[in-house]
Amino acid sequence: MGDDDAVSLDLSNYELTWPVSLFVSEGERIIASAGSSWADRAEWLMTEALSGSTAVADFSEMVNHHEVDPWGGTASGWGRSGPAVMTKHEWFSEVISRASEIRLAAAPRPYWPQRQARGLSTNGSTAHDAQRDFARIVGDFVDNGYLVEHFGEECVDDPNALPDASALIERRLGIPGLWPLAPETWDKDTFYGLIEVLHDLVSRPRMRRYHDYCSCGWHHSEFHNGPARILYRTKVNELLRAAGVQYELAAEGEDLGRLVAVTDDARSQLVHRALHDSPPDVTPDVRHAIALYRSRDASSESKRSAIFNLGRVLEERRALIKDQLGKDEGALFEIANRFDLRHRRADQRGEYDEAFLDWIFWWYLGTVELTNELIRAKSRAHG
């Protein structure tokens, strides 16, 4: 198809319910795949990631590559003519390449009862609302086959019993009788525990087929937990923010998929850089320090341990810091050494507000980032 005959897709009728980056990465994988089933995978992706059925309907109207008549018509002869005809592959490729232009789906504007603060909850902020909303999110994942890899899937042709989902969760969480989900029975710890367990169990089926014998239904296959966990974290973290919960599922680090304390964007970016930019010899200490500090049940002792781990990294880099700061390098360690943080000597002060621990942790993590950059600069200078 030449540039003069190119068809510009109208994306205004589509709404994306997935993160753009996840939709693009899964779409690009389909585009690069070979075989006749790529269109089924594309249709399944759009069914999941785009609100409603409009995009799938538009996709179905496109022709397959072998139906295009190079002399100006189509093999089907159903009214499509001229070189501007798009194939399914071309259409889907353009949707993926322009995914950033697709409007993100948003919750509908409040209806009358919500606006009048009567009847339905206005923001889902109560604990029970959050638990019920979480159960609905998990229900959507179940409907789309995201727990089939671990929980199995019924089929009229397979008489074998399915795995005991409740027992599987109990082995991980130590609490019996949690499946099927009954949010009205949970206490806070059970709710948070289920959030973490199900993060580890979801897995996206990249393929599905319809088994029409006795109306058996959809069967799912080709599982991958990477995209499933990204989508799960996105949905659950949105729910927690809306409910005013000050925790979120960690997207990286030693505590991946565990609830951690929410921080502002700047500190989140600092954590990201420290996890990804630290040299391999110190990465385990940095990862462990971050996990200790931001865990949901972090105590003063765990925060001290986090500071100790970062302090050890900085001690190993003391010569580098001295080379850059001269005699002032001692000031970096003086406060931590005089307070009950690392060495725990009798002459150290131990009575101070816990906010001091937060301050020293972020100071040390920022200094780790600084020394990472100094090391890279030194390497470039000698490279």
Score class of each variant (00 low, 15 high):
200 D>S: 14
30 I>R: 00
112 W>S: 14
221 S>P: 06
156 V>I: 10
296 R>E: 09
187 D>W: 03
207 M>N: 03
183 P>V: 07
142 V>L: 13
149 E>P: 00
28 E>Y: 07
26 E>H: 03
22 L>K: 07
179 W>C: 03
164 D>P: 13
333 F>K: 05
33 S>G: 10
270 L>R: 06
352 Y>S: 01
120 L>D: 10
276 H>W: 04
21 S>E: 06
12 S>Q: 09
79 G>C: 03
359 W>H: 00
272 H>M: 07
193 G>F: 03
376 R>T: 12
108 P>F: 04
62 M>R: 15
21 S>G: 12
225 N>H: 14
286 V>T: 09
339 F>S: 10
312 R>S: 14
139 G>P: 02
346 A>C: 01
267 R>K: 14
247 Y>Q: 05
373 E>K: 11
312 R>P: 00
329 E>D: 11
24 V>Q: 15
2 G>T: 09
86 M>N: 01
221 S>K: 07
17 T>E: 03
140 D>N: 12
261 A>L: 14
109 R>P: 12
28 E>V: 00
216 C>S: 08
258 R>A: 10
358 D>F: 04
287 R>G: 11
162 L>Y: 00
103 R>E: 12
291 A>E: 08
317 R>Q: 07
145 G>E: 05
382 H>A: 13
162 L>D: 05
143 D>H: 01
205 P>S: 02
354 E>T: 13
163 P>G: 03
367 T>F: 06
10 D>K: 02
27 G>L: 02
139 G>C: 02
116 Q>V: 05
163 P>R: 00
103 R>K: 15
28 E>W: 07
90 E>Q: 14
142 V>D: 12
218 W>K: 04
163 P>D: 02
